[in-house]
Design a protein around this nucleic acid. Structure first.
Length: 528
DNA sequence: CTGTGCAAG
DNA sequence: AATTCTTGCACAG
């Protein structure tokens, strides 16, 4: 990395590169190939090699690669999918059970490589493997799989070697998933979550790609449109379009106050950071679900008897999930989608506190059908329904959803104060404090895994799990990196995203005077 | 704490 | 853009 164009090199260092901070982490993003279709094919191998679509209602929500080759696309209607591909085989994917089960197995495998695993949907996981990286003495740094836009540059911070090692770990993970579960997947390896996810999609299916830090801006701008950045959805995109922002470069160079005006400070700063490939968010260990629910959409219904029938059916499905989970929720929420007289629909929900009485409640009864309990819940649900419908006499409902939440939080009272059990929600079975009943499926977390960790990492995991609520900034800037000319006391009080923006600006100022100094820093300057 | 909106797959 | 069936988080009242 010598010669030509030092200026450009410096420019690159200003943004995603974070030259001062370095790229200390190694993040792997694992994405299972055409997930629902793969699960169906594993469970029914006779489907292999044939075009397969997974349907929900009148949509093909996903399909295997054979079907894609014949023109089938995600979220196509059944009708047009069959027109395109008359030989398409369809499997009903409205019940997510089998997909959930495989997802848990995948999580379990990944967890054996690192405690820092974060689920994103049923088929994606982020794994932080920074702590597994060894200081190998001058060993050759061979990247397993693809490297995004091969370049010979080697970053001075040492991330090239670390990422190469990360790619070896990713390869092992994918081999493991393939051998144990028959699952093929893609992996992206990079120094933050955003880039890991993005780079993994550059070679599909069943391949992996590593991003070296020198190529991060190139990767992000290759997306072309801001909507393709994870974190920018339809709503934000609409507002960006209203500002005439329709490329990554425009998003990068838009004055921050314009974004703030349209989106609020937090979102504005975050998405501008993302547009440079900057993402300091941590891999957040996936805890047990905070809510468990089910919903069903249908052609408009108009009578309470029909609503009651639908809700009964939904309730049975949800209770099965809740009981498998083992915890007792104390909140129940009903969601209704109403068809408005203008032909577009609106969702509304009502929530209430409940007494959840079934489950492990000591009676030998146990079946997923405690009738009295269910009737009580049904009554509650119909009351919530009435609240939503109100006095509207000509309502039409096209969706009903039930969701249970309000599970005991982590720091609630716990029996063993010195045990790691402390960190796992304990079933508050008031009748029997301790009992070898169903040993209660622990978080997702094997204690055994935890105990095999080196002490410092174990400590980190425990802290990480406690940090969940008290928003501990991922990389809280300290007074020591307070920008020049800014009162450290003021700086310390600023919201994290403002601080980060200030720091980003400072980096820019330091290393480039091509772009005129941004506006934010000067507002926090001490009068001089 | 409740309800809505936005994001993700 | 929203369609499916979820889940989690941020925000306002």
């Amino acid at each position: 990395m010598e010669e030509e164009n030092g200026d450009q090199e410096l420019l690159f260092n200003t943004s995603a590169d974070q030259s001062t901070k370095k790229h200390e982490r190694v993040i792997i993003h694992i994405d299972i190939d055409c997930y629902y279709a793969q699960v169906e094919m594993i469970l029914n191998p006779s489907l292999c090699g044939k075009p397969l679509g997974i349907k929900q209602k009148n949509l093909v929500v996903t399909c295997n690669y054979e079907a894609r080759a014949l023109g089938v696309e995600k979220l196509m209607t059944i009708k047009s999918a069959l027109e395109k591909c008359p030989s398409l085989i369809l499997a009903n994917g409205e019940d997510l059970k089998i997909y959930r089960e495989m997802s848990e197995k995948i999580y379990h495998v990944l967890q054996s490589y690192s405690p820092f695993v974060e689920k994103l949907g049923l088929d994606e996981n982020f794994v932080d493997v920074t702590h597994k990286i060894m200081k190998l003495p001058e060993v050759q740094q061979v990247v397993s799989g693809h490297t995004f836009q091969d370049s010979d540059d080697i970053c001075a911070c040492g991330c090239t070697e670390r990422l190469a090692q990360g790619s070896l770990i990713a390869q092992k993970m994918r081999d493991h998933l393939r051998n144990e579960l028959g699952i093929t997947s893609c992996a992206g390896i990079a120094f933050n979550k955003l880039l890991a996810k993005l780079v993994g999609t550059t070679h599909k299916p069943n391949q992996q790609t590593t991003l070296l830090s020198t190529s991060s801006l190139s990767l992000i701008t290759s997306l072309k449109h801001p909507r393709n950045i994870p974190g920018i959805g339809s709503a934000i995109n609409r507002k960006l379009e209203a500002l005439g922002i329709d490329t990554i470069e425009k998003l990068q160079s838009t004055e921050i106050f314009k974004l703030t005006e349209a989106l609020g400070a937090k979102t504005a700063n975050q998405i501008q950071q993302l547009s440079f490939g900057i993402d300091n968010s941590r891999v957040k260990i996936t805890d047990r679900p905070k809510s468990i629910g089910a919903e069903d959409g249908f052609i408009p219904i108009r009578s309470e008897v029909e609503v009651r029938k639908k809700l009964m059916c939904l309730l049975d499905r949800v209770l099965e999930l809740v009981e498998k989970d083992g915890r007792k929720p104390n909140q129940l929420k009903l969601t209704v989608r109403k068809l408005h007289p203008s032909s577009h629909s609106v969702r509304e929900s009502r929530q209430t506190t409940i007494e959840y009485a079934t489950g492990t409640g000591s009676s030998a009864n146990q079946g997923p059908g405690d009738e009295k309990h269910k009737i009580k819940l049904m009554t509650t649900l119909m009351n919530l329904f009435e609240k939503i419908i109100g006095c509207d006499v000509s309502w039409q409902v096209t969706l009903l959803g039930i969701s249970f939440s309000g599970y005991p939080s982590k720091n609630s009272e716990s029996p063993a104060k010195n045990s790691i059990n402390k960190y796992f929600p304990v079933k508050t079975s008031s009748s029997r404090p301790d009992e070898p009943l169903p040993p209660a499926k622990r978080g997702r977390f094997d204690e055994s895994v935890l105990q095999e960790l080196p002490p410092d990492i174990r400590q980190e995991v425990l802290e990480d799990m406690q940090n969940q609520l008290p928003s501990s900034d991922p990389q809280k800037p300290t007074d020591s990196n307070c920008p020049k000319g800014v009162d450290p006391l003021v700086f310390r009080e600023l919201p994290v995203e403002i601080r980060e923006e200030l720091l980003a600006e400072e980096r820019m100022k330091k290393q480039s005077n091509i772009k005129k100094s941004n506006n934010l820093l000067q507002y926090f300057r001490k009068a001089s």
